Amino acid sequence: MSATGRRARLLRDARARLRRRSAAGESGQVTLLILGYTLVAALLIMGTVAVTSAQLSRVRLLDAADGAALDAADSLDLGAYRSGLDDAVAVSDDTVRRTATDYLAERPLPPAMRAWQVSAGTGSPDGQTAVVRLTGEADLPFVGPLLDAFGSSVTITVESRARADLEPAP
């Protein structure tokens, strides 16, 4: 075999080895890419579910605060009533707190809520408006156990106001 033939054969063999090596080196790269994208998509979905659950918990807590404020606005404070009628039902801080606490005690805990309570700031700033502040601890899917492991939780605080206006007799 001539030198040119040997050189051509060596060149052909080198190219064949290079093709085999590069084909073997690419093996599994697409699988890792798909696995990475799947992991990112799963994390985005779980995050979206957790945020949606927190929002729903906030809405349920706000609904309870609205009901408690309406109930408290209708509960007449007899001490203030003795001094006469004004343009709204007279309420006091104590009446609002007591009525809101009783309202929550009568209601079942909403789904995805671990606990709720009447918090500071509940009362009547002007003697006619009932202000109810509720604090609740939300139980979030996927994220809740992770937060529990770190000794933390998601706390939601809402505030609702209500006033029972009186209309003069015709």
Rank of each mutant, 00 (worst) to 15 (best):
M1K: 03
S2K: 15
A3W: 02
R7Q: 03
L11I: 04
A14V: 12
A16R: 15
R20P: 04
G25K: 08
G28D: 00
Q29C: 11
L32K: 04
L33I: 06
L33W: 03
G36Y: 01
T38Q: 06
A41D: 02
L44T: 12
M46Y: 02
V49C: 05
L56S: 03
R58Q: 14
R60S: 03
D63P: 06
A68N: 00
A68C: 00
D71E: 13
S75M: 13
S75T: 15
L76S: 04
A80D: 00
A80R: 04
Y81G: 09
D86A: 13
D87I: 06
D94P: 03
D94W: 06
T95G: 13
T95N: 10
V96E: 04
R97T: 14
T101M: 09
D102S: 09
Y103E: 07
L104E: 11
A105H: 01
R114E: 14
Q117V: 12
G121N: 13
G123C: 08
G123L: 10
D126Q: 04
V131G: 08
V132R: 12
E137V: 13
A138N: 02
D139I: 05
D139Q: 08
L140Y: 00
V143K: 01
L147F: 00
A149D: 05
F150N: 02
S153D: 11
V154Y: 09
V158D: 12
E159R: 15
S160D: 05
D165W: 08
A169L: 15
